[in-house]
Every structure is written in C-alpha cells, then in structure tokens.
Design a protein around this nucleic acid. Structure first.
Lengths: 341, 341
DNA sequence: ACGTTGACTGAAAGCGCTTTCATCAGAAGG
DNA sequence: CCTTCTGATGAAAGCGCTTTCAGTCAACGT
C-alpha cells in the first residue's frame, strides 16, 4: 500500500505462499502445467498474475541449464543482408520463446573469438555464426563447448550449416554476362581476408569465365569495403582501366548499385555502355534504375532456417548437416547483350 | 587426454583447487583483481587459462544481480535505420563488456509488452526502446521494475531519452520546399498508429505549411508501410490526384527514394517535374540519382548515446534526462524551385 | 476389504557464483 | 614487546529457481 522506493521483486516463493502451495508446484505451473490439477494451476496462475510475478531468468538458467537465449555473431548489424537475416531469426526464435543475443566482429577474427567467448559465458543455448572461416581458437572453443552451432552462408563440413552456393552465385552472374556476349568482365569484391563468401563468389565467377575460354585476371578484380561508396570506387577504378571491361559483377548488390551510380555520374548508360550484375537480391535492387540484374539469395530464409535448426538442436531433434538454399538469377534491365568489338 | 563425450565444464571451484586457493579468491581474481596479491593473482590466472575456465553468466547474474546484458526493443531489425543504431549500440556496449539482447515488435504494442516482459525476465541491466508511445501496461512494467530505461527518437518526459526533434525534421523538409516556391506539397508517412516519430514529422511539416499560410490537407497525406514499395505506392497515389502536388516529402528516406523511382517510371523528371525531400539521411540517399535532399538524422549517434547512457545509469552515474540530437537539412539535387503556375 | 496404481504435491538438494564476515599474518606505532 | 591496523584470504550463506525423490490419497481391481 505505502510507497516503496523499490519494491522487492516478487519471487517464486511469494507466489507459492500466496497460492498456498509449494515452490515446486509454482515452478511446475510455469514449466509443465500439465502436471498440475486444473484447480491448483488456476490458483497459482491467479496468484502469479495478481502479484505480477516474473520468473528470474538467471536463476532458471542456473537451475535448469538452459537460458532460452540464442546467440548470433555477424560481421556487422549495419547491413541490409545481416539485418534481414537476424530479423528473420529473431522472429522465428521469439515464437519459440527464445531471445536473440547479438554480437558483431567487424571482420576481425579476434573480435569473433571474443564474441564467442562472451556468448558462451552468457550461457546461450545455441549459436549462429556467419561463414566457415575463423580463428582455430574459436573453432576449438566451439567444439569443446559442445554447444549447438549453426554456420550460415558457408559451411565447413563439420558444424551444422544453412548455406547457399556462393560459388554458384558468382558463376551464374558470370555466365549470364558471358551468354550476353561479354568477354571482358570485371568484378568488385569485399576484402577477401576473413570473408569466404566473397572468395567463393569470386572463384565461381572466375571458373565460369575460364570454362568459357575467358579469364578474370587480378587486374579486373578490385577489393573494396562492403559499402555503396566502395562499389562506386571499385567501379571507377575498373572504368579507368585502359582496356575497360564491358560488364561488371558486384560481389554484393550494394557494389552493383554503386556501379550504377558511378556509371551514371560519368554519363555512361547502363546497360548500353556497361552491363552490371549484382549478387544478393536486395529489395532496393528491384527499384534502382535501371533495375539491377542480380543473383537472388534467400537471406530471410537463411535466418529462419538457422533459427529453426538451432531450436531443433537444442531440443535434441535430428537436423540436416547442411541445408543448401538455392540462388537464382533475376534478370532485370542493368544487363544486356554486348554490342561492338 | 582420453576422449570424452562431453567434458564437464570447468567451474570456478576447479580453478580454485588447481590454484590452491579458495573459491572466493578466484572470484575476486575475475571481478576485483586489485584485491589480490600479484602472486596469487598470477597463479589463479594461470590456472584459469590452462583449464580454459569460462565463468557461468547465469550463476554470476544470479549471485551478483547483474547480467552484463542490455536489452533493445525496436520495431524491426530489418531497417537500415534501426540496424545502424543497433550496430552502434552494440559496438559501444561491447567495449564496456556488455552484450545486446534484441527483440522486435513489428509495430505491435502487445508484442512490445511481451518483449519487455521477456527481456525483464532475462535480467537485462538496462533497456533501450524506440519512441515514447506504448501500452500503459508496458510503461507500468518498466516503472515498477525500476530498470534503467532509455527511450530513443522520441522522449516522454519521464524516462531518460536520446532523441531528435522529429517535428523539426518535418518542419525543415517542408520549409525547404516552401522556400523553393512550392505551394502544393504532399507527404507519405508510415502508419501513424503506434509510430510517434512519423506523427511528429507529419505534424511538423503541417505546421510549417500553416505558418506559411498554406496547408497539408489529409488528401495530400498517405500512410504506407515503411518500405521502398510503400513509397512508390504512396507517390503513385499522390501523383494520380487531379490537382497533383509539385513536391513530396517522404516521412523516411526510403519513401522518398520510392518517389524517385515512381516518378522515373512515369517519365517524370525529378526535380524538374517534381521535387522530393526525405527524412533520415540514409547513406543510400546520397547515391541515388538525383541525389536526395533529406533531413539528416544522426542515427548512429543515437545508438552510441543510448548505450553510453544506459551504461552510466547502470553504474549509477548521473545522466541527462533527455539528450536532443540535432537534425540538419542536406540539400541535394532532388529538390528545386517550383516553376510555373 | 486390501494391495495397486496413478495423479498430485511437497521437501530438499543443489545449479556456480558473489559477497559479507571472520581470520590471520605481518607492518606500523607506541 | 604488545596493541592496532592493514592487506590478503577463506568459510559459508545465499541468489531464485528446477528437479529428483518421496509421499499422500483417491480410485481401481480382485
């Protein structure tokens, strides 16, 4: 009744006393209501409700060994791709009563190790990671912890993974351009260090070129920070070449959109003077002009499936070692047949 | 040595035994190393290192009452704005040893209540929320919990907040267009229900118009989902009006970019046939063509400051009740003087 | 009528750590 | 040489919950 500076938090024993039952019963009312008689259950629930009882997660986690929390470590949250995947994960997890604990490593293996340690320490029930490449120390940490782990985008053959065929994505982009008659194709990729997705996409594109009797020399590949500005800068470098490419592949859509801007700024017409293809399939890509031809990646699905897989693993249900999601070429207006020499 | 299916996790007592000290000493070695003799500290650290000891977060949280975890509840992670703010928060928090627990509510007050309950239950040490409008139940939950809370984008005069002047943002956008001679201005906003940021931006724009002897009738305001497609659709509706506006304000940059696309698709030139102004200042907005005139919002700073404020509150350090960050009009090519009748 | 079964419920032992509180050298002071 | 500190460490009591392990009691079968 009176005002309290800070009312002591209602705890399980308070509810038990109020409802005239034991602590065990209250605990069961929350975790396994089926075990209680309807009468008791109702009484406990009424008390809990009235007192505004909120179970203490730390205590539950300590006693039960489960935190109902899943961790996710991504390169950065500030990316349309990871943001979408995490949103999808979060939504799926929330339905199962899980919460998402996130960390980012900004392309630093050491920071990733740190993050893994931090999340492991927090007692997450499962962990989502991006890519298969990481510090050996991190892998060791993960293995000895025995924690459910799901890798995304790329798998490593050991941990469970929800992946796409990044090489195939690169290949599709390149093949599309080759089939349009392009012979001199450039590619802008993210920094290859600690980014197996970009490496695979590059390799895939390169292989497609080679299979067609063409090549993707290092002089036509530029590494850039994964931003729109990076894409523009990369495009500028490639277009400044003496023997400039007639088509460009962006290792991510953002790069390709940057190319569109740069070409526009130079008064070059896309696709007339330059064809551009991206990889990712951002929403934005359908709306830029000209519409961006891109290899669509089911980003949201990756997040959903990663979450589902993790939930299944926590529950000791069997899961696929590796789920490979399909990528698909979406042709829009930014690419067209090469005319001229 | 031998293979174990699942080695029991190393616990504090194991380290204590190994180092020949008490559990209390090991605990102190982690939390308050200054209290130990250099010799003991080194010994404990060596043991911990060798055994690969990782403190159990749940146990620490239970015993100490602090989880070293901060919660954040946003409308969605799948938005350049919130993704950036969260990335900034996460980065700042990580430096202080905190982890970010995220949840999203997809514009549902009930879902937000749920999320608050879930995060409160997880024992977060502080909570970041977006906007000032929410279910009374949520506010009550927050108040009685006594948890450090920081509101972002909008404040409510009660909870600590890191805000921007959304009305001013709307006003700046409108005033800019008015000063260019536009008299008939339309606006696309997000669904006003449970979105005080959009409401404030609309109100600000409307007031600016009225102060100039003009008006922003409901017929020139359209509510859309906060996506690029929503922007296009909204633009289409406004341009289909008999007496179409000569300028459009996007409640978020994404809307404005959608307008650019829609105008382009209709063969209308921006800014010649239509001026467009956004609010947010996305990176993308500087790169679309024509470059988007927008009211820049320091999104990353909001995240940083929210994190810093929360950390300070947890440490019982004094903080500003409300930190108001400046918004600024950035004029680019999408807006120009109105010519003609 | 009496052992059985099954459905509920309670007692109590922790989960792994933090944190008083107490202890005990040795240093400093008288 | 004894008291008074100070600094370093240990003992032990929880933190709030889950989860065996028992126990109670009514219904059931024979």
């Amino acid at each position: 009744m009176g005002m309290m500076v800070s009312a002591a938090r209602v705890k399980l024993s308070d509810v038990a006393r109020d409802a005239g039952v034991s602590a065990a019963t209250v605990s069961r009312a929350i975790a396994q209501p089926g075990l209680l008689s309807p009468d008791t259950l109702a009484r406990v629930r009424a008390s809990a409700q009235r007192l505004g009882y909120l179970p203490d997660g730390a205590a539950r986690a300590l006693a039960s060994g489960r935190s109902m929390t899943i961790g996710a470590i991504v390169p950065t949250l500030d990316s349309a791709i990871f943001a979408r995947a995490l949103q999808a994960m979060q939504a799926t997890l929330a339905q199962a009563g899980y919460l998402l604990l996130v960390a980012s490593h900004e392309a630093s293996p050491a920071a990733e190790t740190q993050a893994v340690r931090a999340l492991l320490g927090r007692g997450v029930d499962g962990l989502m990671l991006v890519g298969a490449e990481r510090a050996p120390e991190t892998t060791a940490l993960l293995r000895t912890s025995g924690l459910p782990v799901v890798l995304t985008w790329c798998g490593d053959g050991h941990f469970t993974a929800v992946t796409i065929d990044n090489a195939m994505a690169g290949r599709l982009a390149a093949q599309h351009l080759i089939s349009l008659g392009h012979r001199r194709i450039g590619m802008i990729v993210g920094h290859l260090q600690f980014n197996d997705r970009q490496r695979a996409r590059l390799t895939g594109a390169r292989m497609a070129l080679e299979e067609a009797g063409l090549s993707l020399p290092d002089s036509l590949v530029v590494e850039q920070a994964l931003t729109l500005a990076g894409g523009r800068a990369g495009c500028a470098m490639l277009l400044d070449l003496d023997d400039r490419p007639t088509a460009l592949i962006g290792g991510i859509d953002l790069f390709a959109i940057g190319c569109l801007e740069e070409a526009h700024a130079r008064g070059m017409a896309v696709p007339d003077d330059l064809s551009v293809v991206g990889i990712d399939g951002l929403d934005m890509s359908a709306h830029v002009s000209p519409g961006l031809t891109t290899v669509h990646v089911p980003t949201g699905r990756i997040g959903n499936l990663a979450a589902q897989t993790l939930i299944a693993m926590v529950a000791h249900r069997p899961v696929e070692r590796e789920t490979l999601l399909p990528v698909e070429l979406v042709v829009r207006r930014s690419s067209q047949a090469h005319t001229g020499p």
